[in-house]
């Protein structure tokens, strides 16, 4: 994988997007194993119903991991300088996550040519679940 050239990138450019498979109970069980987060809100339907909720829902950090993949499919991971996310809505079982990103700023930071990206993880109806921001160093 090569790092894109700073001069070839413009504000407004979109990076390659993807849509995940629908988040399933299996996805959440796998994420619990991989992440170590076994909170019953994500795994145990009896527990969530006792708390007055309709169903289990995805770990917020699963959506951030999808956005991390969006970045590392575009640039090698060592090019990422900062990566931050705000969790704005719950992702329910059955929703597919549409992961998109675009360049919003070109900047120099610590002597490096960088771009700032806005990334969004949304469902297929366009409801944003996570809004993220990343600074990536380019060639």
């Amino acid at each position: 994988m090569t790092i894109p050239n700073f001069d070839a990138i413009n504000v407004g450019d979109e990076i390659p997007s993807f849509t995940t498979e629908p988040v399933s109970r299996l996805t959440l069980a796998l994420y619990a194993t991989g992440s170590g987060d076994h909170h019953p809100l994500h795994l145990d339907q009896d527990y969530v119903r006792s708390k007055g909720m309709k169903d289990v829902f995805a770990h917020g950090m699963l959506g951030m991991a999808y956005l991390g993949r969006l970045l590392t499919q575009w640039v090698p991971q060592e090019a990422i300088r900062t990566f931050g996310v705000r969790f704005t809505a719950i992702t329910w079982v059955g929703e597919s996550m549409v992961c998109t990103g675009k360049v919003v700023e070109k900047l120099e930071q610590n002597g490096e040519k960088c771009v700032r990206l806005e990334l969004t993880c949304a469902n297929e109806q366009g409801e944003a679940k996570h809004k993220a921001d990343a600074v990536v160093a380019l060639a």
């Binding site: 995940t20 498979e21 996805t27 796998l30 994420y31 194993t33 991989g34 992440s35 950090m61 699963l62 951030m64 991991a65 999808y66 991390g68 993949r69 970045l71 590392t72 499919q73 991971q77 990422i80 990566f83």
Partner: peptide, 30 residues
């Protein structure tokens, strides 16, 4: 990697990571 749909083997296959010059599997951003 399996949970997050990762397909790049440097994130889950030690042999592939070593072939890419890494001492182990690369820890992903989150």
């Amino acid at each position: 990697a399996k949970a997050t749909g990762e397909t790049n083997p440097i994130y889950f296959d030690e042999a592939a990571a070593k072939k890419a010059g890494m001492p182990g599997v690369l820890v992903p951003p989150t």
